[in-house]
Amino acid sequence: MEHYTMNLTLKVWRQKNSSDKGKFETYQVSDISSEMSFLEMFDVLNERLIKEGKEPIAFDHDCREGICGMCSMYINGRPHGPWQANTTCQLHMRAYKDGDTIVVEPWRANAFPVIKDLVVDRRAFDNIVQAGGFISVNTGNAVDANAMPIEKDKADAAFAAAACIGCGACVAACKNSSAMLFLSAKVSHLALLPQGEPERKSRVLKMVQQMDKEGFGACTFTEACEAVCPKEISVTNISRLNKEYLVAGLTEDKG
């Protein structure tokens, strides 16, 4: 693809801290290369802001390779921008043309309060995982990989669910601010594997309970989450989670 440069108008959400009301600021950025990533465009803008003695725009990022789940911008009405199965850091400026206006907002959900500008607090996800998204094993020698046979299809489905990077785009896209796609990925990848079997029932009950405590909404199967998920986690996992919850809820006294 041919390289080109562009001038853009950015409308970015600025908020000093969690108690600040916040507002949109408009910035003109010029000579942006089509080869740049979306975050590099923000780096260019931030360097300029620093030179001008202004506060740079705070945004989350880490690996910039689309695998860590840190970047989190809601770009022109879509989490992670216009591309399918893509994170903000992997969005490149060739998605835009000269003269475009881009509106950038943080994830919006009560469970994800804004810390500063485009950075939101996603510890709610950590709390959900800590409630049961793990397997308890005794330490000792690593078990031989072939000691526990796992059907290939199940291993693939578990792996597809485990691809969830916990970025929160599902919550950001959901009209109910529901974390069900995230939760269902975490529950599914363990429910499909023999290692997850011993804590299978208590896990799903505890994790749903924690999700409700964190203030996420209920799922209404609009499937908007699946459409924006950078890892293409399927809503099939939500049905599986519901089945796990149904069975566990009906048969477990505790939990």
Partner: peptide, 18 residues
């Protein structure tokens, strides 16, 4: 469910993906 997002978005997702 509506109350789970006190502050909404300036640009709505519309019917993208749903």
């Amino acid at each position: 469910n509506r109350a789970r997002r006190k502050q909404g978005y300036a640009v709505s997702m519309g019917s993208q993906g749903s």
